[in-house]
Design a protein around this nucleic acid. Structure first.
Length: 1030
RNA sequence: GCUCGAGUGGCGGAAUUGGUAGACGCGCUGGAUUCAAAAUCCAGUUCCUUUGGAGUGUGGGUUCGAUUCCCACCUCGAGUACCA
């Protein structure tokens, strides 16, 4: 009986689906365990072998936990709203809902190409997902709850006293009682103060305007990152190096009315609670950086001859006496007010120039120092000295207050600015030379020339400076965060609609009972001619407050029927709570039942890529904390443990298009640095652009210089091969002779051309030349094989290999489907794990899979031969039991440590050992197949079934490790001399140190090693090692 | 520039608390089987000047003993980018 993996895998996948083997119950006596994969976006390109890496790891863990007796929740679904589907809709006119459905469920695209679909691709890999819990963020019964959470955020404010989100009604009650002056809330800046009496006198609109400044999601004019090419705003984390993350389009700053999320209210808690989760340190570091907490002081400087004040944030209030100028961001509100008439022209020109520069230019060019004096002066809060006020684009409008007190002696940027514009640089540090650069070492700081701060070190000076600033009413201690409130509006079609309509320009929430507000149909997915978002094209997009229905726009009367919000929500909205929704995904009345959330609580293991570090993972933590404050979820953090799986890169296959040059040696001019200059007259022969392709091995054997994709010229040293090559190029004999006599050299230049990796075998050789010639470039190409002969139809042609990102453009994409057809899902699963540690990035090379596949065949033969099952009830040998139990121990440790690669090796060793022991014992083999089952579930089910079990193996108890089987009576000691192992010696383990020493010293090999010397010392660690020093 | 991570055979990688470096697999070499190939099986495979010796990016240090700990440097990768 052969191992027919295709049949076996199809059989068990069908069995699992029909029997709902992995359906998790929301009430169980068993302990819960929640294993989650990061939400995939279902793109049309489908999966390549790199994508399932994390899914395989989480599936192994989930299956392991079932064997360990846990009730395991292991769901899967789709983050199905998003930009690519919409861009595709704009290009092809197809509804994004349709293309998204095809991408998930399979079907055909507009060109008629078959799309297999995510679901089918996932199914053939044998994952133990509970598909009854699948969610899609673009389904109305899902986004109903995204809209519901939005309403909850709108109806909440952040109370700094209780340090949590509270219902907006408690804020209104406070306003009614004592106005807003005593309220300790997170809010917009510059809110006008009012008393309780004034509040009661405000009309409804005014009250709403004020409340918006406190709500956790609010509508406000904000400076946003506008991407003209995509026609939408982008969040900070959607911009990389000044261009959009998707598509790489330029981004400009623009002021727009937008929904924002007051995530800044949670900055400190998001930072603090990082210590409570078991997440990778680099991920925590990047969140810490992104939040960017810095402690210091705000200081207020009066502007001379004006009523205005400039507030700055500084982390070095101790250096306040070192201030010699101030710098404002060019966008700062005060600039136009305070600029003197003499400076007006220069200032305006500068502002215009900076506005023109894109964000990217500004970032790329950090070295150029630029700025303009405004002509105005501020007043030092302590010395009352005048301080010139400059503007400069090194000050960012978006950070702190957009203004800095410049202390050139203590800050390098201020120092450079001062030097450049000849501003004085007063020194306030004792015993420090600042003639060359600023001094920023806090630890060594001793303040001088600073009135009451003289002689103090950094920490004391800082405290005293803040105290004195507070005393004169010119500042206070302050903590500043880099984290900005998150812009929540997108000018796109394919996203969640807001449950919002407008009365008199003020946003109103639709009652939760009327949700979901479904995405309307539109003719075009582009912005309207008046520049409104795509929903502006919808004709049925107005809210009737009497019938509580979405109605035709023509009915808008602004008394009972009002216009609806035209923006949609960003991609991260739907993915910020899906892990909770999975607990009770089909609940129509609640986001999830109390029973479900109280049973499942939180995610125990979350696996996904590190690219979500500052996007999804920060926003999801924010929403979780908000829902926690509101008593909706019981946990402050949603995922206890998180693992970032590494990327799988591709191994591209290269062939080399070559050209030849014959150069006269004596005419080459060598420069000092080793560079060679070749004058025109040195060339005796230059080939025309050829269609001749050389094998890697050939080029490699011609030259001692390594052939790489970045270095494109080598010099022939192997004359014999060089002559072969030249004859292929039909170089005349008299030129060939020039090489032969040594007066000339042959330079071979090459371009690397990538070919399909699926046409290359384990030895890097091309499998099918016919297939290769179908490629445009190669139709009339000549291929020169490893020994320098033109290939007709067959031949040994070795390709070069290069590790790079797996991508269509490098022809190095390998799909899991084809691997599953050829080797089976179990082989794929084992091999992906075997490649290396989960967290590390590593290259894929299909060649290696034969190792994993061979293992499964060998495993199969341990149970089954030509006559059927060969497992017997005979007693297991001591050796076999030893093999089994050391395997149990190692595999259990490995899984608990997420070291899946080493357990695959352990299985291989176990099967190798049991095969040579000719083990047929049911006791051993039944336990072994349970161990293998999480990794290779199909073969495990099949063998389990063949052993006579009628139930699935999936909940069979994990074998118990018994140390008694591993007890040894003797040990093969390594005998080292000065730490170097020289020979081994088998000794009983119960020997005393003295006895060991005696035996070792008497040994002939010891005497030979010592060659008559007397050892200085003999180190003996019983059971471990013997080391002889001397 | 800053922060973090990593450097071990031809390749992916293993090595528990400081205790036999290179497990396991690929590839390669030789052999068996076969008309032949595939598949399978067996043996070998870090390097060198091989009765031995060297060796985990480089140079130092701690130690009886270092891939593992400490210091300095080099290289590569990831993140971040004027954050006051």
């Amino acid at each position: 009986m052969n191992y027919d993996f295709n049949e076996i895998e199809a059989k068990w996948q069908k069995y699992w689906a029909e029997n709902q083997t992995f359906k998790a119950a929301n009430n169980s006596d068993k302990e819960k365990f929640y294993v989650l994969d990061m939400f995939p976006y279902p793109s049309g390109a489908g999966l390549h072998v790199g994508h399932p890496l994390g899914y395989i790891a989480s599936d192994i863990y989930a299956r392991y936990k079932r064997h360990k007796g846990f009730n395991v929740l292991h769901p899967m679904g789709y983050d199905s709203f998003g930009l690519p589907a919409e861009q595709y809709a704009i290009q092809t006119g197809q509804h994004p809902a349709d293309t998204t459905r095809v991408n998930i469920d399979g079907g055909f695209d507009k060109e008629g190409n078959e799309i297999k679909g995510y679901r089918k691709q996932l199914d053939v890999m044998g994952f133990s997902f509970d598909w009854s819990r699948e969610v899609r963020t673009s389904n109305p019964d899902y986004y109903k709850w995204t809209q519901w959470i939005f309403i909850q955020l709108f109806n909440s404010w952040y109370n700094n006293d209780s340090n949590k989100a509270e219902d907006i009604s408690t804020l209104i009650a406070l306003f009614e009682k004592e106005g807003n002056t005593t309220v300790n809330a997170v809010s917009d800046e510059d809110i006008e103060a009012f008393t309780a009496e004034q509040w009661k006198g405000f009309d409804t609109k005014k009250k709403q305007e004020i409340l918006l400044q406190y709500r956790l999601t609010y509508l406000a004019d904000t400076e946003v990152n506008w991407c003209p090419a995509l026609g939408t705003v982008l969040a900070n984390d959607e911009i990389v190096n000044g261009v959009s993350e998707r598509g790489g389009h330029p981004v400009i700053r623009k002021k727009m009315t937008q929904w924002s999320m007051r995530i800044s209210a949670y900055a400190q808690r998001l930072l603090d609670d990082l210590t409570t989760v078991d997440w990778p340190q680099p991920l925590k570091d990047s969140q810490t950086n992104w939040i960017g907490r810095s402690q210091g002081a705000s200081a207020i400087f009066n502007v001379k001859d004006h009523d205005d004040k400039i507030e700055v944030f500084t982390t070095r209030p101790d250096t306040i006496f070192g201030v010699s100028f101030m710098t404002l961001a060019p966008e700062h509100d005060l600039v136009s007010k305070i600029t003197t008439p003499e400076q007006k022209e220069a200032v305006e020109a500068y502002i215009e120039a900076t506005a023109k520069r894109s964000e990217r230019e500004r970032m790329a060019d950090v070295k150029t120092i630029s700025g303009v004096f405004t002509g105005a002066y501020a007043e030092h809060p302590f010395t009352k000295e005048p301080i010139p006020i400059w503007i400069g684009d090194y000050v960012l409008a978006g950070y702190g207050t957009g203004a800095v007190m410049a202390v050139p002696c203590g800050d390098q940027r201020d120092y450079d600015f001062a030097k450049h514009f000849n501003i004085t640089i007063p020194n306030i540090f004792e015993g420090v030379d600042i003639s060359e650069e600023a001094f920023a070492d806090k630890g060594k700081t001793v303040i001088t020339n600073s009135d009451f701060l003289n002689g103090l070190p950094y920490k004391k000076a800082m405290k005293l400076a803040i105290y004195e600033l507070e005393k004169i009413g010119h500042g206070k201690g302050k903590i500043n965060y880099r984290l900005r409130d998150a812009v929540f509006s997108r000018q796109r079609y394919w996203g969640e609609p807001f449950p919002v309509y407008y009365v008199d320009g003020m946003p109103q929430m639709i009652d939760a009972e009327h949700l979901p507000i479904a995405l309307p149909e539109v003719e075009k997915y582009l912005p309207t001619e008046t520049g409104e978002p795509p929903l502006g094209n919808a004709t049925i997009w107005a809210w009737n407050t009497e019938t509580n229905e979405v109605v035709d726009n023509s009915e808008i009367n602004n008394t009972t029927v009002f216009p609806l919000e035209l923006n949609t929500m960003p991609g991260w909205a739907g993915s910020s709570f899906y892990f909770n929704r999975y607990m009770d995904p089909n609940n129509e009345n609640e986001i999830f039942s109390k029973e479900a959330i109280n049973y499942w609580q939180d995610v125990d293991l979350y696996i996904g890529g590190s690219e979500h570090a500052t996007g999804h993972l920060l926003y999801a933590r924010f929403w979780q904390k908000f829902l926690f404050d509101k008593g909706v979820v019981p946990k402050n953090e949603f995922a206890k443990k998180l693992i970032n799986q590494g990327m799988i890169t591709g191994t591209s296959a290269l062939v080399y298009r070559i050209n030849l040059k014959v150069v006269e040696k004596s005419k080459i001019i060598l420069r000092e640095k080793g560079e060679a200059i070749i004058p025109k007259e040195a060339f005796k022969y230059i080939s025309v652009k050829s269609n001749i392709f050389a094998s890697y091995k050939l080029l490699d054997s011609i030259s001692s210089k390594t052939v790489t994709s970045s270095n494109s010229v080598i010099t022939a040293e192997n004359i014999e091969l060089a002559i072969k090559l030249m004859s292929i190029f039909k170089v005349e004999k008299n030129i060939i002779d020039l090489i032969n006599d040594g007066s000339h050299i042959l330079d071979i230049s090459y371009d690397c051309i990538r070919i399909d990796v699926n046409n290359v075998d384990a030895s890097d050789k091309i499998i099918d030349f016919g297939k290769l010639r179908d490629w445009n470039d190669f139709q009339h190409g000549n291929f020169i094989d490893d020994i320098g002969v033109i290939i007709k139809n067959v031949g040994e042609f070795t390709t070069g290999r290069e590790v790079e990102k797996m991508s269509k453009r490098w022809y190095n994409v390998v799909s899991p489907d084809s691997i599953c057809v050829e080797y089976g899902a179990d082989s794929l699963r084992l091999y992906e794990m075997f490649l290396g540690p989960l967290e590390q990035s590593k290259p894929w090379n299909t060649a290696g899979i034969t190792g994993a596949h061979g293992f499964l065949k060998k495993l199969w033969r341990l149970y089954v031969d030509d006559n059927g099952v060969k497992v017997t009830d005979t007693e297991a040998s001591k050796d076999s039991l030893k093999t089994l139990h050391k395997t149990i121990k190692k595999v259990e440790e490995d899984i608990e440590n997420f070291s899946f690669n080493t357990s695959v090796s352990t299985f291989m060793i176990a099967v190798n050992e049991l095969s040579s022991q000719k083990c047929t014992s049911r006791e051993v083999l039944e336990a072994l197949i349970i161990l293998v089952s999480p990794y290779a579930p199909h073969i495990a089910e099949e063998l389990w079934n063949k052993l006579g079990h009628s139930e699935s193996i999936s909940t069979a108890p994990f074998p118990k490790f018994e140390s008694s089987h591993l007890v040894e009576s003797s040990k093969e000691y390594p005998v080292s001399f000065n730490g170097k192992m020289r020979f081994k010696l088998e000794l009983p383990l119960d020997l005393s140190k003295e006895e060991i020493e005696k035996t070792v010293m008497e040994h002939e090999k010891t005497q030979k090693q010592l060659a008559g010397r007397t050892p200085k010392k003999v180190i003996i660690v019983p059971g471990k090692i013997i080391n002889i020093v001397g």
